[in-house]
Amino acid sequence: MLEGKFDEASLLKKVIDAMKDSVKLCNFNCTENGISVQAIDDSRVLLISLLIEAGSFEDYRCDRNIVLGLEMESLNKIIKNGNASDMLTLVAEDSPDALNLIFEDKRRDRIAEYSLKLMDIDQDFLKIEDMKFDAVVNMPSAEFAKICRDMKTLSESLQIIITKDSVKFNSEGDFGSGSVVIKSFTDLEKTEESVRITLEKPINLTFGAKYLNDIIKSTPLASQVTIKLCDKQPALFEYQLPSGYLRFYLAPKFED
């Protein structure tokens, strides 16, 4: 039996908004520690790893491991019916054929209850070795989102060049080119505005702008984004949840 109560439906709303355009079908693996998802987009370029730990819930219990095979578009339709400020409880029996979602309005005692049919989703699970990264950038997620949107107007490829104290986003297209350079700095009042760069080795990697613009749909989830890069390896873009994370592993583009 799974019973997980969010204080606000907004958290799951933001998570679904961040994932639904990249992956259509997901297995939500529910254990006593929380809910985890691993899914790969249709082009097999972007791997998404979600962990919503029990600490993200007001109340959480899952006394037997349950797999919820969910069609993201249908889940999104139901989530949109609830108010972001409603409490949201997820309920499922052991070996369930449906997921129940209960929205409770804190004030007017209005209760909306939905049942979402589950699907049998056969998904391969990729093992992601913990790896040492050559560079780690912590920066405001809104700033990263703007850079990805702006650079995409110029080209379908975005180059990321990191030296000891700056990150350069570079885009070269048919009608022109552009670049944005950000430097390390600490904002003592508003720490979420800070930019922190940790560099072991210089980085020069290119990624698909389309995928970066899928990744930045996570921006409402967290004020900062952590970007971890290693030469010739997928980049990791991580958005922290109250307890857990939403991670995107993006395969790079190589010079022909």
């Binding site: 791997l47 592993y249 395969a251 790079p252 583009k253 190589f254 010079e255 022909d256």
Partner: peptide, 14 residues
């Protein structure tokens, strides 16, 4: 010109 590679090139099936 740059060529996109897929994620399976880096991570193996469990």
């Amino acid at each position: 010109e740059t060529r996109q590679v897929i994620i399976d090139k880096f991570y193996s099936d469990e």
